[in-house]
Design a protein around this nucleic acid. Structure first.
Lengths: 318, 318
DNA sequence: CTGAAAGCGCTTACAG
DNA sequence: CTGAAAGCGCTTACAG
């Protein structure tokens, strides 16, 4: 041991991995690190993996299924011990890779049980009930008395989280006898500009929605900023509910109501489940992390008729 | 090749790495992924490494030097081809590890030339001139006519970026004949709360500063939010300048002036330089990426005497 | 208990 | 041009 420290010997991980048959590495493929939500989850995974001397390999695919497949193949060629994927919408090639390599896969961020899957692979999941996200938002806004609602969503194609949030929102509205026409659901790229442009489009609809649910806080913040630019008073004239509870969401004025998703916890639990899987050789049981609605002052009852006529004047000015 | 695809053969990276002597992996140790600035840089590195079939191993140390050393050792045991570090403040053990393993190291985010280093190791750097960040902020605020200035900084101990920003700010002020007393520099943990509490403390100083430079945008945003809570009118009564130009900084009202750091570019250039290093076997040359001041409406001339007396009234109310 | 040997799955230099 | 052999640096089962 003295010689080890004196010479600065560091064991060769590649040789070790070859002899042992596993490399103490897990790969994670996320849509992007540009959203704090994924960055935090990755941070959570990394910190708990680190404690058990596992390394995290990350890749981002920027919402491209083929980029994801390539990233997964590259990860698999590094002989990772497990793979973490976000959501259950993946390309056929991805599932094929997973099936043939038999790499342990953990699906996160989603509730697989409620999802139609292309190929049935026995991947356990630890995530959120994204339909419930939409439902919580809908129930909250309905309780406030809103009748005309709109939604700004990320692209739902190849994104089960976004799709489920729309579905959950719409279903809860329909259950309460409120319709959510297709053209009141605006799909936009994630980002402040997407939120802005989504709000803009919704504000041109007639009847104009008095409440808006945004698929995540980035879109909701964009919508909030655009409402400010348009001189629309939030929450007096418009209620906005987001999802994620980003740190900024509790700081900003006007206050943003949102659905809190414990993403750091998610990352930690995902990592912990993998570690258990490695040691017990038994896959973790599927589960959903609890989520909750955080109501801030943005959410008020819908405006009076007098305010509504003001809307129309504004609309004429545009 | 037909059999390869049919059987789903994926080469074993560990064996390949052992035979080849390198694993096509680079390790990056960042303070945290919780700040969008590091997340974006990591994203930049990852995307360009990916194109050349390199994998990125990431670790975060949450501003702890010993955690960093451990993370680096763990990375080194995975036989990485290169190591990317943020800043040049590292523990003795870290430099020792680097010296004995002779792993190629690239230091980023900082301008090493201007730094006193504990151990002289020949690590090239690609980063920013953080003194210039402070200087740009100071010159801007001086030009507006401010005489009483304050600063909210991250902890400067073990953080050369934070230290250099303070130094650059102070030096530029002193050069213009304006003093920045030590107690007008408040060190706070990075985060909105740090910014809030820093602003709070500065607003109790007499004379009260009319302009504040914050070490980064997260602190600046926190300061902005706190100013709103305290009913201090930004920019009429107080100018705030941040650093980073986070996406949110261009959205928020009141507008935040800031120093733009191209962190995504930084990540890409770091990765590209590593790739060149690997192929040519010659280390990259040191360089600084250009930065620029982004002036938004927050930065106004200092308030008139009448407004100053209003300050005092406010202060009494507290 | 100690120490030499075999083997992990690749790559590459070399023999045929 | 093809194919068998050696070797990368570990771990582990086994011989002494």
């Amino acid at each position: 041991m003295h010689a080890v420290t004196r010479l600065g010997y560091v064991p060769d991980g590649a040789a070790r991995a070859l002899a042992l048959g596993h490399a103490r590495m897990v790969g994670a493929v996320v849509p992007t690190l540009d959203n704090a939500i994924f960055a935090r989850a990755v941070q959570g995974m990394q910190s708990t993996l680190q404690e058990s001397n596992y390394q995290l390999l990350i890749a981002a695919h920027e919402y491209s299924l083929t980029a994801e497949t390539h990233a997964i193949r590259a990860l698999l060629e590094r002989s990772i011990d497990a793979l973490v994927l976000v959501g259950c919408d993946h390309s056929f090639e991805t599932w094929e890779l997973i099936n043939t390599t038999r790499v342990p896969v953990l699906v996160t961020w989603t509730n697989v049980k409620t999802t139609e899957r292309i190929l049935s692979i026995p991947a356990p999941h630890i995530g959120f009930d994204n339909r419930l996200v939409g439902k919580l938002a809908a129930e909250h806004l309905l309780k406030l008395g809103h009748k005309n609602l709109g939604m700004v969503s990320g692209f739902t194609r190849h994104n089960d989280r976004a799709r489920h949030r729309v579905e959950g929102f719409r279903t809860a509205l329909v259950d309460a006898g409120v319709r959510l026409p297709d053209d009141y659901v605006i799909e936009q790229p994630f980002g402040f500009d997407g939120g802005r442009s989504g709000l803009n489009q919704l504000m041109q609809m007639r009847p104009r929605p008095t409440a808006i649910f945004c698929g995540n806080d980035v879109l909701a913040l964009g919508a909030l900023f655009e409402a400010q630019s348009l001189q629309i008073d939030v929450p007096q004239e418009l209620s906005i509910v987001g999802c994620d509870n980003l740190p900024i969401s509790s700081q900003i004025t006007p206050k943003l109501s949102t659905v809190l998703l414990p993403t750091y916890d998610l990352g930690q639990q995902v990592a912990q489940s993998l570690l258990n899987w490695f040691s017990t050789n038994r896959p973790p049981t599927d589960r959903c992390l609890p989520i909750e609605l955080v109501v801030r002052e943005t959410s008020l009852p819908p405006v009076s008729e007098s305010a509504k006529s003001r809307y129309k004047n504004n609309a004429r000015d545009e």
